[in-house]
């Protein structure tokens, strides 16, 4: 064998390399690996948690949605009923209004007719008196015959 001082040199180099590796190489590398493993582990756990949460929320949402749907149906039903009610009411009210307006119209027409009748009556009386005056000129004493003319007018 050919052992010589090289052995010592290599031994020293070996020790130095191992010490350097122990101090500056292994801890950061291994630390980074372990930290990443921890991070991944935490991330996976968090994602599991989130998945469960999602499932829960989804169920909750479904329940809420159903509730909302039934509520909406209820509201629509109510609204329909109310609409029908309003339509009925309005119809009745309209009918009444119409009848009222018609009645009012009738009475107005009546009163107008009466007024016109009265006016016509006076005018005819006047015309009759004027006509009678023209025809009878002198024979008829206005004062003496006015009661007859009045009677005639009343009969018109």
């Amino acid at each position: 064998m050919n052992l010589n001082a090289t052995l010592l040199g290599e031994l020293i180099a070996f020790v130095v390399f191992v010490l350097f590796c122990m101090k500056y190489v292994w801890p950061p590398l291994n630390g980074a690996i372990e930290a990443r493993q921890k991070k991944i582990e935490d991330g996976l756990a968090a994602s599991d948690e989130a998945e469960k949460e999602l499932e829960r929320v989804r169920k909750e949402a479904a329940v809420e949605l159903n509730e909302a749907k039934s509520q909406a149906a209820e509201i629509i039903e109510q609204a329909k009923k109310r609409a029908a009610l309003i339509v009925d009411e309005e119809t009745t009210r309209g009918q009444q209004e119409r009848e009222k307006i018609i009645a009012q119209g009738h009475s107005e027409i009546d009163s107008e007719r009466n007024r016109v009748k009265e006016e016509l009556r006076t005018q005819v009386a006047t015309l009759a008196v004027v006509g009678a005056e023209k025809i009878l000129e002198r024979e008829i004493n206005q004062d003496a015959h006015s009661d007859i003319v009045d009677k005639l007018v009343a009969e018109l």
């Binding site: 390399f17 350097f20 590796c21 190489v25 590398l29 980074a32 990443r36």
Partner: peptide
Amino acid sequence: GLLFLWIFRSAAKKSTTG
């Protein structure tokens, strides 16, 4: 040996947990 330490040391310096 120095090559080994240099390679691994430079990896260690740049190592991230990301």
